[in-house]
């Protein structure tokens, strides 16, 4: 008999295939989130998923959970409100880098300051994927995007610094580091207080393609080459992944 992918029970399977591009990292992060929830035996009733706007913002709608697809940048305040209204609920966000650090950046400052007990999973693809590939707050210096054709001149936002300044949980991983990324989400979900997991993820269509990647596999492998696991320090360097709590 064919084995069952039991984590799929957290998704509305009739909505699959999802609408993301072939090879998009969003699907891997959807899967990682389900696996972590399954490992913790999260009840479907009593767990709420919130998203903002963007390709990643479509995530909430695929879960077989109560979910809210909020306005652009507003996943954080909506999730905080839900948690404050009913503290029994597990409240999670999956949203994009543009959504959480760009238009929603101010909310990140205050949600972490308030240490609200919610878990945020950021699909950090360093681009505004949905709108065609504009430079985002996490785009690397000298990276070519639609709006930085000669390379980005600005320093990316230091999410680790913002989140850890308020003594909250911060973890960074990549779609390549599958088990590591799952552990990050698993631990974040168990953390009491504000927890933030940033997962570097590939957008081949509106980012990779412009930077010379031939396919999403090459982007996945670039994470393998560019990021090393740090298990010991309380600060992650630019090229490191790990958990700070």
């Amino acid at each position: 008999m064919t084995k069952e992918l039991t984590y799929l029970n957290y998704l509305k399977q009739e909505r699959l295939p999802h609408q993301w591009c072939p090879g998009c990292g969003n699907g891997i992060i959807l899967k990682l989130s389900c696996l972590a929830m399954e490992k913790l035996n999260f009840p479907k009733k009593g767990t709420v998923m919130v998203s903002g706007i963007g390709c990643s913002g479509r995530s909430a709608g695929f879960f077989d959970l109560d979910s809210v697809h909020t306005a652009h940048g507003r996943a954080l305040p909506v999730a905080e409100g839900i948690k404050l209204a009913n503290e029994e609920l597990n409240v999670m966000i999956i949203s994009g880098d543009g959504d959480l650090f760009g238009i929603g950046g101010n909310h990140l400052l205050h949600a972490s300051r308030r240490n609200t007990d919610i878990t945020v999973i950021c699909i950090s693809n360093a681009i505004y994927g949905m709108t065609g590939g504009q430079c985002s707050p996490t785009t690397e210096i000298s990276s070519k995007t639609l709006t930085t054709p000669r390379g980005n001149a600005d320093t990316p936002v230091n999410v680790q610094a913002i989140v850890t300044a308020h003594n909250c949980f911060y973890a960074r991983s990549t779609t390549f580091h599958f088990n590591h990324a799952m552990k990050c989400i698993f631990e974040a979900l168990q953390h009491k207080g504000f927890s933030f997991v940033e997962i570097k993820s590939q957008c081949i269509t509106n980012d990779g393609r412009r930077r010379g990647f031939k396919n999403s596999y090459e982007m996945l492998m670039s994470y393998k080459d560019n990021y090393k696991i740090n298990n010991s320090s309380n600060k992650l360097e630019h090229n490191e992944i790990g958990i700070i709590k």
């Binding site: 064919t2 295939p17 999802h18 090879g23 990292g25 899967k31 999403s216």
Partner: peptide, 9 residues
């Protein structure tokens, strides 16, 4: 593990 579309078992 890496199939983004949960298409493989």
């Amino acid at each position: 593990r890496y199939c983004p579309d949960m298409a493989l078992i």
